[in-house]
Computed example of a mutant assay.
Amino acid sequence: KLEATDNANEGSLDPSQELQFTPDKPENEETLNVLLIGVDTEENEPARTDTIMVAQYSPKDGTAKLASIMRDSYVSIPGYQDNKINAAFFFGGPELLRQTIKENFDLDVHYYAMVNFDGFVSLVDAIAPNGIELDIKNRMYYQSSNTYIDFQPGVQTLDGQQALNYVRFRSDSNNDFGRVARQQEMLSLLKDELLSLSGLTRVPRLIGQIEPYIDTNITTGKVISLGRDFLLNPVEEIETLRIPIENGYVDRTYSHAGQVLELDFEKNRQAISAFFNPDQENTEMIMSAHDHIDDAPYEEGH
């Protein structure tokens, strides 16, 4: 296996050798799993991801689920030394990330959608031209050579750039855990804005506006079809999950990867299965219980 470093700058794939995205086809078109990737692309630097989510959408019944996989989750990466899950994207793009999610969590994804920071700003401004209103709980302050974030507590209306700062912030005691919660919150707010009366009238134009900022294997025709389903069966609430789950990890440090979240994979796989496939999970539990009954010794008089 090639060795992956914390900075992911050794042994990486040449961008021209990025793996082709080759997912298994969905068993049906009733439920789709989409890999959502937020990318940081700096000039003359390889793309990195600090946002990894799997969204599940069921057009037929208008339900949506969103699982965030924290970027420091320590996982097995096919062809490489175990490392943080965001290293999988650096080494092989969306396809290696897809393979990594499948190998570690037994979860299939059928499509991917990738957006960089500039694209996110444009996305928010297109969906919510008057801004996104939210209640900021605590002071949020961070300053570096190229980033300035300063939010006071209280209800505020954020434009696209401010929304990006809000979901990227992690300079408090909650660190990446708080950032993941804010990312999920922002997507839910954008969904509500899209389903508002003003948002619905802009949907056809929005598809054209957003398309240039998203790298995806979903065809334009499929996007339009899903958009129509989205309007006919609006998603009332997005169910969310965070991986690792509470009490499903420990903090570790490795020389090649730095500080990581070492997962209890049994707990986290069970959580993902129950979250995305509750009917299958219940069926397996019933069958398992039935097998135990069949295997139980017969006792006279019972």
Rank of each mutant, 00 (worst) to 15 (best):
R242E: 11
V124W: 02
L19A: 05
Y142I: 08
I77Y: 08
L200Y: 05
N247R: 15
S173W: 10
A257D: 04
N83I: 01
P212V: 08
P204W: 07
V121D: 07
E300Y: 07
N33F: 02
M70C: 04
R170A: 08
L32P: 02
D229E: 11
G258V: 05
G301V: 13
T219D: 12
E266T: 13
Q17P: 00
L35A: 06
H110D: 04
N33M: 04
D192I: 01
Y142R: 10
T201S: 14
P278E: 12
E42H: 10
F91T: 00
K65Y: 06
Q259W: 14
E10R: 15
K60Q: 14
K191V: 00
A4Q: 06
L35M: 13
F117I: 07
T100H: 11
D172A: 11
G208T: 04
L195H: 08
E300F: 04
M140E: 04
G221V: 06
R252F: 08
F169E: 02
I132L: 13
K102G: 02
A4R: 03
F275C: 02
D159E: 09
D172Y: 11
T253S: 15
N9Q: 10
Q270H: 14
G178H: 04
Y249I: 02
T41V: 12
L13H: 10
D264T: 09
L107P: 01
T147C: 04
E133T: 15
L187G: 03
R205P: 00
D24H: 12
T41L: 10
P153W: 05
E27M: 09
D172Q: 09
T49C: 05
S16D: 09
L2F: 12
V39F: 07
D24R: 15
V180C: 10
D14Q: 11
Q81E: 05
I218V: 14
Y80W: 11
A271N: 12
K84T: 02
N282Q: 15
V223R: 11
V115N: 07
N282S: 15
E236C: 06
S225Q: 13
T216L: 08
D279V: 15
L261S: 13
S12R: 13
G178A: 05
R139G: 00
L263V: 13
I243T: 00
D72E: 07
S225W: 11
L36P: 01
R168Q: 06
D24Q: 15
T31Y: 04
A128P: 00
T220S: 13
R182Q: 05
I207F: 07
F177D: 00
P23Q: 11
D106E: 15
E262Q: 13
V223G: 03
G208D: 10
